[in-house]
């Protein structure tokens, strides 16, 4: 099959970008979207042009590196699928496909389709952990955890940090990402101890990165490759409200 590709090309963060049009011929329907781009890059290299830069690593939907908006939808918009697992058989022969980077102030473009998502790391650094140091942990079975709680925590913990939620949200909000980590740790007894401090600090970090606000449109949930539920945002709202009331009059730090 053949496709016309409109791909965002931008030399670096300081340059202006623009769309370039490429013809992708001889596409095998069994290719993943990224393998199709690999082939386009091979032909660009053969012509002495610089290949399209994009992030990818595991190519099995778990590392969260790949990040591109395909025809207006992060990862192409197929349910529970990252761009690396999106296969070409889902496209129509002769279709024009537009490929753009994640668009958000907090995710500046580094080059072409690559953006800087280190804001997510800084949010985790602000509080997305349990403050235990190596050594001295008690036996793993000392605190029983109800199975439904463990399952719910796992639902949230599955987040791969790809940023599709931010890319999809009309406000470029990172609430689903933050909610997933806050919920994962607040549901488990090990993380509950410092849950108030954690949620206050993570939200503060989120705000300072310049993400937008949640208006509950649900687009984040719809494009999330791990199908993280919007309910976790409700939980985050609740956790923050409780932490806010408890911290009244006392410094959070």
């Amino acid at each position: 099959m053949k496709l016309t590709l409109k791909v965002w090309r931008q030399k670096d963060g300081d340059s202006r970008g623009e769309f370039a049009t490429y013809q992708a011929n001889d596409i095998n329907p069994d290719m993943s979207f990224l393998e199709m781009l690999d082939e386009v890059n091979e032909s660009l290299l053969a012509r002495g042009e610089e290949p399209i830069a994009f992030d990818s690593d595991c190519r099995e939907g778990i590392c969260g590196a790949c990040s591109m908006v395909i025809n207006g939808l992060p990862h192409g918009g197929r349910k529970a699928t990252t761009a690396c697992q999106l296969h070409m058989r889902l496209f129509e022969d002769g279709e024009t496909v537009t490929v753009e980077p994640w668009r958000a102030r907090a995710f500046p473009v580094v080059r072409d389709l690559i953006v800087d998502r280190s804001g997510f790391d800084r949010i985790i650094q602000a509080g997305g952990f349990v403050s235990v140091s190596t050594g001295g942990a008690q036996d793993a079975n000392v605190i029983p955890i109800p199975k439904p709680d463990a399952e719910l925590a796992m639902d949230a913990a599955q987040c791969i940090g790809c940023g599709a939620c931010v890319a999809a949200c009309k406000n470029a909000s990172a609430m689903l990402f933050v909610a997933a980590k806050v919920s994962h740790l607040a549901i488990l007894p090990q993380g509950r101890v410092e849950k108030n401090r954690r949620v206050l600090r993570m939200v503060e970090a989120m705000d300072s990165e310049g993400f937008g606000n949640c208006t509950v449109t649900g687009s984040c949930e719809a494009v999330c490759p791990k199908e993280i539920s919007l309910n976790f945002i409700t939980r985050l709202n609740q956790e923050y409200a409780v932490a806010l009331l408890k911290s009244t009059g006392q410094s959070a730090r």
Partner: peptide
Amino acid sequence: DHCVAQGVPFAREYGGM
């Protein structure tokens, strides 16, 4: 032990173990 203390959500049985 350490991973559980960090909040790794390992699979559990109904009794919580």
